[in-house]
Design a protein around this nucleic acid. Structure first.
Length: 541
DNA sequence: TTAGGGTTAG
């Protein structure tokens, strides 16, 4: 293998500093003084040490800058071919990571398919790259597709003559968590035991996270206890896991244990801690930890921390205090903060504050379909027709269509998808019969179908209709029919659950004596014996 | 001497 050019004509550092200058700014993307021509000029005299240049590009702090970095990446790629490094695995693998990180999936595939020889790192790049695609995907649908593709690549790797390593395992476990694919995750767990890679702290942490995200707090906790070493991230994962499962006391206890053994928490740890307080309505504790974070650990609060605190006040119905906190922030509230307040105002009947928050939210020109639908529902139920048509017009202007309601359930080696308007998906007859049957049984127990508001894309008018065919209902029914009695049902959903479905699953969990775990676009819902781990709060459509 | 992996609220 030819060695890489270590003598740099021009200056790699120059490229680095230019790149940093344009990406570390807090200016909104469109206001940055940043042009490709400018970068071309920077790049021109640079005959690169490819690794260094690429690592600079890949570490771009956000998606937009990464996309811009592609203009450099492409040039580096073609330069690498011109200079004869096409078959240099280190170079090619780096370029693969770059493409995948920037979301250029087809280019990565083209590169992968065209490579004469590949190494384990190439496989790992493809898997980790698809895993990261899940995070930057525009919607849950494409995120899900990336995840499934990552699983397929992992299967292909297993069938090849190469063996996965710690990097493969940690990536694929993350994919399993995002897909709520417990059975795949369990298989990977077994593999990590057989290969001895489970002792790796990153693999162990990924395993904790996988079990938690798949709804099994018991096994997450077991995996955590069995780790021989733990990093701050391992502790944070477990704290967050307890918090997400509504086990606030355990989350806080674990945080104290973490401090006791001298592991320093970070910003993300405190998000877990504060959200645990929020779930349990522990106002004093939350405020104490907030102070501790600032004073003892010198961690600057970010929007996420405020969101936890505001969420806490909103849950308790203390809307004025929530608003006070919003005013106290050093920065402008974002879409999430206003949405929290609006949801709170709706459930606690404080419409005036809700309308005020809605105006603030609209002035941020949100791009998220779900936000618009939430606003639309709010105005509709208040009979504010002027506002209804205003929001509709904004949605038209933003070219936002109907919410894409998809759900997935992973059973054994297969992932099954469901969408409400597709009556051709898996055996629909049986699913319909079961749903009808459950509906009949739920009514005497007190279930009332509420119907739900939805926005149609073509006719530009809302219709109220039964939510009986919402995708997660189909997926859960399919799961009930195709898994052993008493085993939990795990479903992933592309958008927020609606109130009606949320209510319905409580009854189903009683009627079928099953745990029903649904991860929607917002959070984890675990229905056990008529109750949901979200405490019936949270942004339901 | 190596390109690569794990944690964030609603």
């Amino acid at each position: 293998m030819a060695s890489l050019p270590s003598v740099v004509v021009g200056n790699t550092l120059k490229l680095e500093s230019e790149f940093r200058k344009h990406t570390s700014t807090s200016l909104p993307f469109e206001k940055r003084n940043f042009t490709t021509t400018h970068l071309d000029k920077t790049l021109e005299p640079v005959c690169l040490d490819f690794r260094e240049a690429l690592s600079v590009i890949k570490d771009g702090p956000n998606f937009e800058s990464s996309v811009y970095a592609m203009s450099i990446g492409l040039q580096v790629h073609s330069l690498s071919i011109k200079l004869g490094y096409e078959s240099n695995l280190r170079v090619t693998n780096s370029i693969m990571y770059l493409y995948l990180k920037c979301g250029w999936i087809s280019d990565a595939k083209k590169l992968f398919d065209g490579m004469e020889k590949i190494s384990l790192i190439t496989w790992n790049a493809m898997i980790a790259g698809h895993a990261q695609m899940m995070d930057i995907a525009e919607d849950s649908l494409s995120a899900h597709r990336s995840g499934v593709e990552a699983l397929n690549i992992f299967l292909r790797l297993n069938r090849s003559n190469m063996k996965p390593d710690i990097f493969t395992f940690s990536s694929i476990l993350t994919v399993c968590s995002s897909l709520v694919a417990l059975e795949h995750g369990e298989q990977v767990h077994t593999q990590t035991i057989k290969t001895g890679f489970l002792s790796d702290v990153v693999v162990g942490t990924a395993l904790v996270n996988m079990y938690s995200k798949c709804g099994s707090i018991k096994r997450a906790s077991k995996a955590f206890v069995e780790m021989s070493t733990r990093t701050m991230i391992s502790w944070t994962s477990m704290i967050t896991a307890f918090s997400q499962h509504g086990r606030s006391q355990q989350a806080l206890q674990l945080f104290e244990d973490m401090r006791l053994v001298g592991v320093r928490p970070n910003q993300i740890t405190f998000v877990g801690v504060l959200s645990a307080c929020s779930h349990a309505g522990l106002v004093d504790e939350a405020l104490n930890y907030f102070e501790m974070m600032k004073k003892e650990y010198k961690i600057k609060p970010v929007m996420d921390h405020f969101a936890c605190l505001i969420d806490m006040f909103v849950r308790l119905g203390k809307l004025d205090e929530a608003f006070e906190f919003v005013k106290k922030m050093d920065f402008e509230p974002n879409e999430v903060i206003w949405s929290l307040l609006i949801a709170g105002c709706r459930s606690h009947g404080n419409l005036e504050l809700g309308f005020y928050a809605a105006e603030q939210l609209l002035s941020l020109s949100p791009k998220d379909s779900e936000t618009y639908v939430m606003l639309l529902n709010m105005y509709l139920s208040a009979g504010r027709w002027k506002d209804v048509s205003r929001v509709r017009k904004m949605m038209r202007d933003e070219k936002l269509g109907k919410l894409k309601d998809w759900s997935w359930i992973s059973i054994r080696d297969r992932v099954h998808s469901f969408k409400p308007d597709d009556r051709s998906c898996p055996p629909c007859g049986e699913v319909d019969i079961l749903l009808g049957d459950l509906l009949e049984k739920a009514r005497p127990l007190g279930y009332e179908s509420q119907g739900s508001l939805e926005v149609t894309d073509e006719k530009d008018e809302e219709t109220t209709f039964s939510s009986i065919h919402h995708s997660e209902k189909l997926a859960v029914a399919f799961g009930l029919l195709n898994t052993p009695n008493a085993s939990p049902i795990r479903v992933m959903k592309s958008i927020s659950m609606c109130r009606d479905c949320h209510n319905f699953f409580k009854f189903i969990s009683v009627l079928t004596a099953r745990e029903i775990i649904i991860r929607d676009s917002k959070r984890l819902h675990k229905f056990v014996n008529g109750h949901c781990s979200c405490g019936d709060f949270g942004s339901l459509l």
